[in-house]
Design a protein around this nucleic acid. Structure first.
Length: 280
DNA sequence: TAAGTCTAGATCAGGCCCGT
DNA sequence: ACGGGCCTGATCTAGACTTA
């Protein structure tokens, strides 16, 4: 408290806490509060650099977040991009993000191909980042207390049982299978017996679809491509071939290798405070 | 059969580049 | 100083699958 504090209406503070903002957005909003009300002013020329200093976000990202918040009427910026910024105290005007919301994969084995897929999650998720402790100080006084992330309570995964390489699909050699297992280990994605057999089965499918390609070569190509799994269709796309469409996944997923779409207020006369903040 | 693990798409976040 | 585009990596999620 020696370096001052920021007075803010509880209603507004609670609004910020409860608003559907991402972690970055909330940090930027709080930084704006710090740079305005923290200096006992309603608005201020706030640059991305200033916000970056407080939030520890990259300047370019702060700039983007500020623009997004302006667009959603969470904050106001009268005039051009270098005009003063003020927080919109009318939280009813704050617009929720219109961007694509995070959706959990919708995997319904029995009906995924015939029924429209409904998103399983409609609200954005605010992720906990173990490398960025949450803001513990709202008033901008000093450095937030360093907090160590909680020890993970998730039990360690059991080691994968030794895989059976005796009954491999026709055309797949033990060496190729072991090579693939090693590849997966290197990727820190050890596989189960079933996953192995499915992968090798896909290699056989690929060899049947692509003239001149053996199952072993399909596996080698998968490793060279850096894929963690074998998928005949990917190999067809990569190497060419008959290109016949293989049955779609029952769960509707596309596979991981799909191409990317391409100063501080000091206590004094309350008359100096914004109207809404008086008498708290 | 319950609990744990595997899996891959979706989303968020950080950073860089470049034009305005 | 801003803002859009792009790339990369981390994290979340939930059904399928495995294991005790």
């Amino acid at each position: 408290m020696e370096d001052g504090f920021t007075r803010i209406a509880n209603e507004l503070l609670e609004g910020i806490i409860g608003a559907p903002l991402t972690d970055r957005e909330r940090r930027v909003v709080l930084a704006i509060v710090r740079l305005t009300y923290g200096w006992n002013r309603k608005a201020g020329r706030i640059y991305a650099e200033d916000v970056s200093e407080i939030t520890n976000l990259h300047e370019s990202r702060c700039s983007k977040v500020i623009s997004e918040l302006v667009r959603r009427k969470v904050i106001f910026r009268q005039g051009g991009s270098r005009s003063p910024i003020t927080l919109n105290k009318d939280m009813g005007q704050w617009e929720a993000s219109t961007g694509s919301k995070r959706q959990a994969p919708t995997k319904r084995a029995e009906s995924a191909q015939n029924e429209p897929i409904e998103p399983a999650q409609n609200e954005p998720t605010f992720k906990y980042r173990k490398d960025k402790p949450p803001l513990t100080s709202f008033e901008g006084e000093g450095t937030p207390e360093k907090s160590t992330p909680p020890e993970s309570t998730k039990p360690k995964r059991a080691s994968v049982a030794k895989l059976d390489l005796e009954n491999l699909p026709d055309g797949v050699t033990r060496e190729a299978a072991e090579g693939f297992i090693e590849h997966r280990k290197a990727l820190k994605k050890p596989l189960t017996q079933r996953a192995l057999m499915l992968a090798l089965g896909e290699a056989v499918k690929a060899s049947q679809a692509i003239p001149g390609l053996s199952p072993d070569q399909a596996i080698d190509e998968t490793i060279l491509a850096g894929w963690q799994g074998v998928k005949a269709q990917w190999l067809i796309n990569r190497l060419g071939g008959q290109g016949a469409q293989l049955p779609a996944r029952k769960d509707g997923r596309m596979g991981f290798a799909q191409p990317r779409a391409t100063g501080t207020y000091t206590q004094g006369n309350d008359d100096e405070l914004p109207d809404w903040a008086r008498g708290i």
